[in-house]
């Protein structure tokens, strides 16, 4: 049986539908990513998963327990890292960890194995107040506190937001070690490049899941013809020029390149003639996660 089962979940705030009929399952010791922009519904979903918010309808089972009926049992077996830093800023690193261990009737020593790799990085600062830590260190302390009672399911709401690129890579490395301990991880992020670090990924937008797949299969959601144009200089000028062409279905900046979508072979032929005439360097590419996300947004 799946470790997490979400069925037909709905949640509204007044007129705003935050979650519209969300269903998915997560296997034991899987890293399941929920990727989407701010306002997509990620936090509402995670608050329902952690029994902190009641759904309007639908059900969630975690490790065979119902998040509404068995909320007291659920809270003992999950570790939750909310989006906003929620540790005690006026307690030290060590005091925070001790506090969370004690609340769950455990001790730092009992589960030290599980957090050792993370905690050694912040241990030199264990007397420092949590409020005085850098972003990367706050994040590691929060993860340690969420893990200290050895939860079965780890729920991480945007753990890498606002953290620098080096700390982000280290954080994902840590999640892969935690997974090996048999812990199931559901993690949200607004950063599409982090999809590659998940076992499976749900793309979410405006309260709806647009697709669920392994990271290497996300591109299958993109079914049109895609070209990458590399003008060297002046990608923005190129973008404006080609948007006026009839064969251009749509075109977007991708750094110093432009990604061009075409719908038919006729459009492709016309574009290739244009590229030849303008001596424009271009190649046909497989869609990345952002191309796919935009395509799914368009279809939605």
């Amino acid at each position: 049986m799946s470790e997490i089962q979400v069925k037909n979940l709905h949640k509204s705030y007044g007129d705003i539908e935050a979650l519209k009929d969300i269903s998915f399952e997560v296997d034991k010791s899987e890293i399941f990513g929920v990727i989407g922009p701010d306002g997509a519904g990620k936090t509402s979903l995670f608050r329902i998963l952690t029994s902190l918010l009641l759904p309007d309808s639908g059900s969630v089972m975690l490790a065979g327990l119902d998040v509404v009926k068995d909320y007291d049992k659920i809270r003992k077996i999950i570790g939750y890292m909310p989006g906003r830093f929620s540790l005690y800023q006026d307690l030290s690193v060590e005091e925070n960890l001790n506090f969370y261990a004690t609340v769950f009737g455990s001790s730092i020593e009992e589960n030290y194995d599980l957090i050792r790799d993370i905690y050694v990085q912040i241990e030199p600062f264990k007397k420092r107040l949590a409020g005085k830590l850098s972003g990367g260190m706050k994040q590691k302390l929060a993860l340690s506190c969420a893990l200290i009672h050895r939860p079965e399911v780890l729920v991480l709401d945007e753990p890498t937001t606002g953290v620098d690129a080096v700390s982000r890579v280290e954080f994902w490395d840590l999640l892969h070690k935690i997974k090996l301990e048999g812990i199931t991880i559901i993690v949200s992020t607004p950063y599409m490049d982090e999809a590659a670090r998940c076992d499976r990924v749900a793309l979410i937008q405006k309260g709806e899941i647009m697709s669920i797949s392994k990271p290497e299969a996300i591109h299958k959601g993109f079914t049109r013809i895609l070209y990458e144009l590399s003008p060297g200089h002046g990608a923005y000028r190129l973008l404006k020029n080609i948007r006026n062409e009839e064969w251009c279905a749509n075109a977007w900046l991708f750094g110093q390149s432009v990604h061009l979508t075409l719908d038919t072979n006729k459009e492709e032929t016309e574009f290739l003639e244009y590229a030849k005439r303008e001596k424009l360097s271009s190649k046909k590419i497989t869609a990345g996660i952002e191309d796919t996300f935009m395509e799914l947004m368009r279809k939605a």
Binding site: P37, D38, L253, F293, M297
Partner: peptide, 18 residues
């Protein structure tokens, strides 16, 4: 531009380019 969907982010970078 943190936290927005890929289309909105690209619209933002078009404003910057402009």
């Amino acid at each position: 531009t943190g936290g927005v969907d890929p289309i909105t982010r690209r619209q933002f970078w078009e404003l910057i380019n402009e």
